[in-house]
Amino acid sequence: MSEAKSEKEATESRPAETIEMPRSTVWPLVLSVGIALLMVGIATNLVFSVVGIVLLFVGLGGWIGELRPHHGEERIPIVDVPPIEFAGPAKVEGVRRARLRLPTTIHPISAGVRGGIVGGLLMPIPAAAWSIWAGHGIWYPINLLAGLVMPDLTDLSAANLEQFHPTYLVIGIIIHVLMSLVIGLVYGVLLPTLPSNNVGIIIAGGIVLPMIWTGLCHGWMGIVNPLLADRVEWPWFVVSQVVFGLGASITVILSERVSIPPAEGDA
């Protein structure tokens, strides 16, 4: 709507003595009583319906009469409305500074993705260390990971799972890279909601989020792939996740904070 139009609007409707408003009328009521009686007749006796139809047309006729020019309107005088008050009996100031609370500087989302890459590179170390220490060999964890999308893998024997399978290696790496990037992205997006000091970020990103993630995996893996759930050593799973989380968090802390452009401060 153009500025000129609204100006015109304002001048046109200014202190006229009267305003044209639709006049009170009984015809809509008559019409609806007609409809109602028509229906009541169906439930009781058709005589009511006949009366209803008559009323319906009477109401309709009256209504159309109101639509004729200068028939359905009246001009009513304007009462002087007092100016707007900004505070009534309960006087309260608005909280001006809290239009919307946003930190002025944040770590960029890209820092989260980089954190995901670092965490993803670090994470295989504890996983492989555990696997070798437990006597499963280095390929065991990656085969288990591939088992997430390859259900037939769970049919393999434990011994077979410890061997090198090129397809599973490729699939496992793809899953690992994708998950690291996605979770890194989640870190990046969540960053503005995390505490702004470094210790807070390490606690939230290095411990709380890995624990939530582990909980989710623990809960869901039994449904997605029950056989696999049996083979996962949860303490070591936690350790791997925490290593990922710490790696990601520290990368984030090391990144440069950027300030939010003021234009983003939407109401």
Partner: peptide, 30 residues
């Protein structure tokens, strides 16, 4: 008695008297 805007609210219904006149607003607000 309530006055026009007892809660110090921000939308247009509070910009007229309580209860409003039949025509709501003397001038159509911009």
């Amino acid at each position: 008695p309530a006055g026009n805007n007892p809660w110090n609210a921000w939308t247009l219904e509070w910009a007229t008297s309580s209860p409003p006149p039949a025509y709501n607003f003397n001038e159509v607000p911009v």
